[in-house]
Design a protein around this nucleic acid. Sequence first.
DNA 1: ATGGTAGCCGTGCTA
Length: 266
Amino acid sequence: MQLTIATWNINSLRLRQAHLHKLVAELSPDVICLQETKVPDELFPEGIAQAINFPHVLKRGMKGYNGVAILSRLPLTLAENTPDWCGKSDCRHLSAEVATGGAPVTVHNFYVPAGGDIPDRTQNEKFAHKLDFLAETTAHFAKYPPRRAVLVGDLNIAPLEHDVWSHKQLLGVVSHTPVEVEGLNAWMAQGWHDAVRHFVPPAEKLYTWWSYRNRDWAASDRGRRLDHIWVTQDLSAELKSYKILREARSWEQPSDHVPVAVTLSV
DNA sequence: ATGGTAGCCGTGCTA
């Protein structure tokens, strides 16, 4: 069967429930991974998953910040005992097994710390947290090599030169600094393959996020590719297509991120 | 070099 997995930093699930209908119409996903849901589990709007016919829901949310969720058409089994990253219990990761026609597929949904403004771990503890988070995920997947897995999320790093609108101007800006890129690449090297760059040559500009702090995001087009989909090497030959839903940045009261999806045979 | 906007919740924090 074909499996389509979408990822989206929705920046408040309760505020943008209606957008999920559009996401489903445009991408026809089987699994939707959300970040920055910004809703505690007890206030999670269960009705929205029913309304879009995604009966299987896992969520890990908190008040005000962060929060991740997985909505699925296919049965999910929560992966228990995943690490408490950096000991913060701050709702940045959910992992589940998805029941498919064939063998199950493991999905990881991550929301990596943004890292604050100053790219120096001694001056900025949020940047230190981001680097520590990358080191922990790298060590985790080195210890437990992933198989038949898909990793998605807002990883808050644009690793390639053409994942940002200006490589030179962003080299010192958090999300594109060499130390972050090195950390992300070390993580990816633990068995992962970039499923979107699989389809798009590195010289081609590719963005999934455009700042709110811009009067005309489309005209200036100062984007970054912060949202990613990776697959394990055993699934890379099964990749069929990808889509970045750029038009979502123009939806009414939009998120600053747009959905990304990949389809593979499983 | 600076400021710009958005969402949550309180008059600031995080992105």
